[in-house]
Design a binder for these strands. Structure first.
Lengths: 250, 250
DNA sequence: CGAATCGGCAATGTATACATAGCTGACCGA
DNA sequence: TCGGTCAGCTATGTATACATTGCCGATTCG
């Protein structure tokens, strides 16, 4: 009846800003508390497609799947439902949500609004020299990736760049909100990744936003990053629309 | 051992847009499921100050307070913690969070970014005639309230106007996110309400935003509402700073 | 043959039981 | 007297038990 594993570490991880993307990686899964374990594990499976959209499972089944009792699983499921990754239908189990095109658009709208604000705040706070260097290196690498046609690598770096700037915004609540919505767009992004054209425009826009950030110009940063997001979001929606004919799951 | 009350109604209220603010009113509290009951009840008590910042209670005490078992109370508390209204310290109970000036600033930053986006979307969708009429009436009433110096009434209408426009944005996720952050700024707003000068500027800005909305001009709406929020947020922060000397609770 | 109602069943929501971990305070040793 | 360690207690986290609710299917009536 030992509830959790060895449980050597703290579970209450309200740490400092933490720039890490809320991404699949799932290293120290065994050393978390059960609730967190359930949450991260399920989230991971959903985001990577291991639990496909439409999949429906009972709370009991999930608990069995994770070797836990229903209580922590249930708490994790509630959280996932609040994030919009699953839907709980009272008598029918929890279903991994399929993202319609409209859902994806809605998510991007929220996500972009938040990210632009984060960029603004970062601009206002100003970048330290080491931040400038690090971000600059990322942009260099992205351009390299573009040059050699490695769009997967490019996409990773893109995420990293964005989340790095967000991490510098100094507003923990904003960051948390962004992370939640980030998770939702991730699946769709993955899907259309291979379809994307080489992101020359994005590279240019990044450079231009970066310049505004360096200059500490909030208004300019807002304007430029907003334009970038608008265009990129539209492009992504187009790709998605084309790739699933407006009906499909992500 | 009867879990919930008569429970005549649905708890899975993923209904249509619903313009209702997530406000204290708490009518049909008895007919909800226990978890929702706990959540709304606690939230109500916190937002209205009945549970003052700094108050610390054990899960058991909360359960007793609400005449429920720990399970639904715990789930509600987790939700409140995610919203940032309380803090759960593993061995010390749940504490109603005090909002520092910085917290309040952070909250406003997120809230404003989201609200501006919602206004943009509403502009893009366009207002129906009845919406125009309703919103117009609200603005009239607000100006009346200003004229007779009824700032409480003005503030209610202000909330109503904003949430009404948000409700028309057509993005449920955005609305949900806004509501969560709305709850957090509410307490501080209440506090500074009596200190506010008569909001002539706000009235003008509302009119101007309203015009942009009517025109269906997304960019203009963004610009104007963003300016409004910027100014209003700054003003509120100033008032708060003055009223509690930068340390205090809200 | 179709539709409506009733009964059984199973999944959830809630309550409770239980075990662990961390804090408090006391006692012992220096 | 002060500091350190250990033991006990209590709050939480997890597991389990239990009751309700709502669906599905079967049966019966029109």
């Amino acid at each position: 009846m030992r509830p959790a594993e060895p449980t050597g570490s703290r579970k209450n991880d309200r740490g400092k800003p933490r720039s890490s993307r809320p991404v699949p990686s799932l290293q120290g899964l065994t050393e978390m508390a059960a609730r967190e374990r359930a949450y991260h594990d399920l989230r991971y499976r959903i985001l990577t497609g291991r639990l496909a959209p439409g999949t429906t499972l009972l709370e009991t089944e999930l608990a069995a799947l994770l070797s836990l009792s229903r209580t922590p699983v249930r708490e994790a499921v509630i959280k996932l439902a609040e994030e919009g990754l699953v839907e709980v239908r009272p008598r029918h189990g929890v279903t991994v949500k399929a993202l319609s095109l409209q859902d994806f658009g809605n998510i991007l709208d929220v996500f972009s609004a938040l990210e632009v604000r984060a960029f603004e705040l970062t601009a206002e706070r100003g970048l330290r020299i080491e931040d400038v260097r690090r971000l600059g290196r990322m942009l260099d690498e992205m351009e390299n990736a573009t040059a050699v046609g490695d769009i997967t690598r490019w996409s990773e770096l893109d995420d990293e760049f964005h989340s790095e700037v967000v991490a510098l915004c100094g507003n923990q609540r904003l960051q948390t909100a962004i992370n939640a919505f980030w998770g939702q767009q991730y699946r769709a992004r993955l899907m259309i990744l291979p379809l994307r054209p080489m992101p020359v425009e994005s590279n240019d826009e990044h450079r231009s936003t970066f310049a505004a950030l360096q200059a500490g110009d909030r208004a300019l940063t807002r304007e430029r990053h907003n334009a970038h997001r608008d265009r990129a979001d539209r492009q992504q929606l187009d790709l998605l629309r084309r790739s699933l004919g407006s009906n499909g799951l992500a």
